[in-house]
Design a protein around this nucleic acid. Structure first.
Lengths: 130, 130
DNA sequence: AATAAAACAGTAATAATTACTGTTTTTATT
DNA sequence: AATAAAAACAGTAATTATTACTGTTTTATT
């Protein structure tokens, strides 16, 4: 049960900290493999799950069928571009009041919400014009 | 290109209209098969996609790795029970103003949001007490 | 009735993820 | 420092949801 150190886990966490684009397990795998060539994909999945269970990283399910991971665990919202699929952090005021809105006519216990926004990112807006 | 009638599609739509629990493709398949024993799973998937592309039904991605389907296409929000996994409709005031909130400091174009709420449903609340 | 398009059943393929197995690493204890 | 148990690993196999393919059947139009 007790956690033991592993170089692989450290490299996974370190890599994730350098990125703001919310990479998938596979992208973590191909990148960490540059520094540590025989790391296995299973190890990447296991450690991403472990790190997110410990609350050191965040797992994002954005409806595209692939899990994304984020080293930034502070509360913030995400935007997904409908065109290029990129995932961006949004800097916006909290919308957590919607949890209360939802609870008004509900008999169970609402604990929270999952929200993400979609649309066209700045780059894709530009590309469409030209 | 033109749509042609199919008994299978009719049965899928009809079944979905009888249900308020947001079934998955597999549940649609096993149920419709009671009335139409040799319908194939591929047909169910194809028609669910077709119906949702036409806007006759709604596809829900709730982060549990399986798509759910809803014959109710009117705008409403969903609740997912963390314990039993059930999916319920919420009757609540609109929260679509969060799209504007998100757009305030954002350079791209925000078109909408995907939101669902999670917690413990009424039934599971009761079960936990006893 | 003839025909072209669409849909079908059944099966194979894909993609993301998890599970399994025998080996290696870590860490606490002698 | 040597030992030993627990944890983690690499590599592979299995699982699950979904999509793609193929030859046949159904629909709807001439």
């Amino acid at each position: 049960m007790a956690l033991k150190y592993s170089k692989q886990r450290e490299l996974i966490k370190d890599f994730l900290c350098t990125r703001k684009d919310h990479p998938t397990a596979d992208i973590v795998y191909t990148n960490v493999r540059q520094q540590y060539p025989n790391i296995s994909l299973g190890t990447v999945y296991r450690n991403l799950t472990l790190l997110s269970d410990m609350g050191e990283i965040q797992r994002l399910r954005l409806g595209d069928g692939v899990d994304h991971f984020d080293a930034d665990t502070s509360p913030h919202n995400h935007f997904v571009c409908r065109q290029c699929g990129c995932v961006l952090d949004l800097s916006m005021e909290s919308i957590d009041h919607i949890t209360e809105t939802a609870g008004k006519n509900f008999s169970g216990k609402i604990e929270g919400h999952i929200t993400y926004f979609y649309g066209i990112c700045e780059n894709c807006c530009r590309d469409t014009l030209s």
